[in-house]
Nucleic acid binder design. Structure first.
Lengths: 229, 229
DNA sequence: CAGTTATGTTACAGTTTTGTGACGGCATGG
DNA sequence: CCATGCCGTCACAAAACTGTAACATAACTG
């Protein structure tokens, strides 16, 4: 509801993958345009420049690598963020070596949430107004761009995990998250970590948030998980 | 636990189809159990009744039609929504003609988003609380997403069991539940506890609900059980 | 009404869940 | 190389919740 809707160009030849991703992007509020191959992608880019491009690197007709190179070469499209999807980490290295200028790389099979986060990140870079930047809850303010957290006038210093934890909470205040959900969202879907680790980080986050006074904003929901507020 | 996560039973013999769908369901927060054929499906249903069944109609061993017929025949599973997937619209007519009692039909190849919407629809019918909606009864409001219970302006603090108990009641207001039913739904199918334990928790729930004034919303049905309203 | 049965209520001891400080490992950046 | 900071795990402490038994009260029966 800020300015206009954010345009995502999704380039992926495998229909199932494409629709899965498109579905999720649309659920997040993006306008998705689809392309099956590099050639189609270039046509759509010429037609109307998207805000961000998600690009499978292996495609018929015109590879993702080449598309990326062209986008990053032309002055009028150079600023558009490109996220490259590739099948394995070795490929990422290879692609990176080709110096296509992609802004981010995601290895398949990707964690959907993580990919979404990366999309958000790139979008924020180019369209700061479009993605709600400063989250606030009560007297806590979190600036996603600067990674700064303030409580009242005081700055709160957080470690990376505590920060992500807080972001997760602040994106959906009051919502209860199970420990498993938090592990998925904050640590990553395939990480194996004891669920009690969540408790420890909650404790650390609590300590940091209440260090300079103020009430504990995190609510424990016994038998279920935690929530902000 | 019947109250927290929604259990989907996904019955589909084609692995690619099955996994694609399962992936998406899980991304939406459903707990997915998979079956490759009708026989397996029936076994899983007996083991623990799911909240909803998604059923491919054409399968080896025991067809979706037959599974559906059995589910809809047995009293203890009759209420479970069944969504049938079939390959073409003519088949839908045919299946509909067989009067299996399926609650919805989706034609393959389906639009994933539409299917998800239909799943949500069916779930809402049977488990309103689990679908992120606020339940209300009289001046009591229960939000499943935040796990918060309000009576008027006051927040009601409940223990886990009392909370689940209240959710169960509020999903079907006015319906009378026997102690055994409540044990099944709130405690779990295979837990052994004295049926009088239900009375104790009812008392605790009553106390919590009336602590800050207001009338007792729980009705005792002598010789049978309890009901809300 | 007295007897009988079902439900309400309370206290409590045992169990489960959560809070938290301590510690060793690992990476990062001098 | 060392210092620093962060992380995950463990172990123990604290808190919250649970089921049961026992007794009180209410509702039904004839």
């Amino acid at each position: 509801m800020t300015v206009s809707q954010i345009q995502v160009l999704l380039v992926e030849d495998e229909p199932a993958q494409r629709e899965l991703l498109a579905y999720n992007l649309e659920a997040e509020g993006y306008a998705v345009r689809r392309a099956e191959n590099g050639e189609e992608a270039m046509m759509l880019i010429d037609e109307a420049a998207p805000d961000i491009i998600i690009l499978d690197w292996m495609m018929p007709l015109l590879s993702g690598i080449e598309v990326c190179r062209r986008v990053k070469t032309r002055p009028e499209t150079r600023e558009i963020p490109v996220i490259m999807l590739s099948a394995r980490s070795e490929e990422v290295d290879a692609v990176r070596g080709l110096d296509t200028g992609a802004d981010d790389y995601v290895i398949k099979p990707y964690n959907l949430r993580e990919l979404m986060a990366r999309v958000r990140n790139q979008v924020r870079r180019v369209r700061p107004a479009a993605s709600g930047e400063a989250l606030t809850f009560d007297d806590i303010a979190l600036n996603a761009e600067t990674h700064r957290v303030m409580r009242g006038e005081q700055e709160i210093k957080l470690g990376p995990t505590e920060y992500r934890l807080l972001v997760t909470f602040m994106e959906k205040p009051s919502r209860v998250f199970s420990r498993d959900q938090l592990l998925d969202m904050v640590w990553g879907r395939d990480i194996y970590v004891d669920t009690r680790t969540v408790d420890v980080h909650i404790a650390r986050l609590r300590k940091a948030l209440t260090k300079q006074g103020g009430t504990d904003p995190i609510r424990t929901v016994r038998g279920t998980g935690y929530a902000l507020g």
